[in-house]
Amino acid sequence: MKRITTPLTDKVLESLEVGDEVLITGVIYTGRDAAHRRFVEALDRGEQLPVDLRGQILYYVGPTPPRPGMVIGSAGPTTSYRMDPFTPRMYEAGVKATIGKGGRSQAVKEALKKYKGVYFGAIGGAGALLSQTIKKADVVAYEDLGPEAVRRLEVVDFPVIVVNDVRGNDLLEQGKAQWRRTAPA
């Protein structure tokens, strides 16, 4: 188990290996489909992003509403491939890691190597458990998007696994290669 704190340095990113279990403490930002579209439109217009994401982690999540007195509702990862068309631009803009579930496109894996980034997997469908590590949540951009608004989360020991590291290794490929019992179709 490795513990890291945000923002992330290149040294930390290089130390992370595919399959490593990692606990994240610090600030992470949320963003999913609609927010990514707006991020990239802003970058295309040569504008600043509404939040400074350099060195930061972007988490693909749209939480359930909190009960009164709670910080956030259930908050697990959504499927990452939907963000793939936008993701290389986000790493180019300085994002250092993303958190989601499922695999990434070849273009994203290339971007991870080029910009020295990682892709973390959180356990999809474990939103109740993951929410317990979130200590603070504030909407910081695109409030009109509701569950898809950009939030700034403060987390303590948020559990993830390294799915794609800076060297181009892929946990999904490795896992399948190790555990498959039949010839590929």
């Binding site: 259930s74 356990i123 469908g125 474990a126 939103g127 559990p159």
Partner: peptide, 27 residues
């Protein structure tokens, strides 16, 4: 690793039930 994931999924179900919280954010 798969054993750990399954443990986490079961633990998640327990937390959701105890705290009256959605099992998954995608309801």
């Amino acid at each position: 690793r798969a054993q750990k994931v399954l443990d986490t999924i079961l633990q998640n179900a327990q937390i959701a039930a105890e705290k009256q919280l959605a099992l998954c954010q995608d309801t």
